[in-house]
Design a protein around this nucleic acid. Structure first.
Length: 221
DNA sequence: GACCAGGCACATC
DNA sequence: GATGTGCATGGT
């Protein structure tokens, strides 16, 4: 039997406590981090952001002034640095051209428009866009990632072939639209995510199997 | 040395 | 429409 998402959240929160996300300081830093963390360990992103901070370019205006080679060198520790330089450039161009580099103006739009505009930027996919909506714009949007997929699929709570939108609906349909809840829930899933590692055929040591014995059915894949 | 990390776009069939 | 591949550094 499938435990409710409230039970799952409750169990994770009681075990691990608040995760204090997003691990950044300003909305712009969240946006930059959201791009840099794509398929990358956060530790590496931290190094890159530290270098950006030291170079005093953690604002749309300052970062936009950089040449590609300078930006690339600063974000290098985050990996895929040539690719991510392009993606950050696309974002900066969008911010400056459409919103004068003003994030308050960016976030003043309604959720649907904002999400659509972000997704239209080359290099911004659903998770990156939703991370910006939740952690920078503070809108109640549930962020889905690889770990979310593995957790849901391996427990048999959702079909393995479920797409991003279906998983997002899975959460948003069952939970009240609450920024703090969505913030903490996603962070907690990432917190335990490494236990659902790629090659493991089943989730030994899975925290939810312990925490929620009635929901600990695992689908190997 | 192999494998993995808080994706995404693009090529090819 | 599904499936495969490139992108890159740093930790285990």
């Amino acid at each position: 039997m499938t435990p409710s998402l409230h039970d799952i959240y409750q169990a994770l929160w009681e075990r691990f406590g608040p995760q204090n996300w997003w691990p950044g300081e300003s909305p712009f830093e969240v946006i930059v981090g959201a791009v840099l963390v794509q398929n990358t360990a956060w530790k590496n992103v931290e190094r890159a952001i530290d270098q950006l901070r030291a170079a005093e370019v953690l604002s749309p205006q300052a970062m936009a002034q950089l040449h590609d080679e300078e930006l690339a060198e600063l974000i290098r520790p985050a990996g895929y640095y040539r690719l991510k330089t392009r993606r950050l450039r696309n974002l900066l161009n969008y911010l400056v051209d459409h919103h004068e580099g003003d994030l308050d103006r960016l976030f003043a739009q309604n959720r649907e428009t904002l999400r659509a505009e972000l997704l239209a930027i080359n290099g911004v996919g659903p998770e990156t866009a939703d991370s910006i909506l939740l952690y920078a714009a503070e809108l109640p949007v549930f962020v889905v990632d690889t770990y979310t997929h593995r957790m849901l699929a391996r427990h048999g709570w959702i079909d393995y072939d479920a797409d991003y939108h279906q998983m997002q609906e899975f959460f948003e349909n069952q939970l009240e639209a609450d920024v703090s809840l969505f913030n903490e829930f996603h962070a907690l899933i990432v917190r335990v995510g490494h236990l659902y590692c790629r090659k493991q055929p089943k989730c030994e040591e899975c925290p939810l199997c312990d925490l929620l014995p009635e929901g600990g059915i695992v689908e190997p894949w």
